[in-house]
Amino acid sequence: SKRKAVIPGPAEHPLQYNYTFWYSRRTPSHPTSSQSYEQNIKQIITFASVEQFWRFYSHMVCPGDLTGHSDFHLFKEGIKPMWEDDANKNGGKWIIQLWKGLASPCWENLILAMLGEQFMVGEEICGAVVFVRFQEFYIWNKTASDQATTARIRDTLQQVLNLPPNTIMEYKTHTDSIKMPGRLGPQRLLFQ
């Protein structure tokens, strides 16, 4: 790639990984092929430090203020927010469904935990997604079959998001998402 490498500026606090924000709009009436999905998803910005993140994020629209079929994605640089990416093809995601009004504060807490390496699952985290319309968040990891990792991600989410009682959570492998692209399935976890 000819793009200039993003590095932390002087006196800035570097992050463990560079991250890229992406934005996409869903077209609900048409089933989405991976090709049209890729065309529909746009890179916004890549950052390498805490300060670069805030310079962008402070001016960004909050998920709670957006309407319609929009997703924001925040992924490690080099990982596309697509099932087909090498980092994602054996992976899965936690789905967290929230009540209206909680989307913006929870999204911020989720991404701060990710940027600050609070999950402590090595290289496993790929990125996070907020789907505005359904007030849903997803956190994607590399290895869906690694139950110790997925349990640890769940426990960290519960801590850092301070999830209210009756929050619905479900883990779904990307393979299952491809086969059954609907939303939440029958196996849900309710935090009490």
């Binding site: 570097p14 805490v50 701060l112 935990a113 390496e117 850092v160």
Partner: peptide, 21 residues
């Protein structure tokens, strides 16, 4: 190797730093 970790409180403090604006 060492991982660069930041807690939420620290990250929020950085938000107000002059170089983050």
């Amino acid at each position: 190797g060492t991982r660069i970790m930041y807690d939420r409180k620290f990250l929020l403090e950085c938000k107000n730093s002059p170089i983050a604006r």
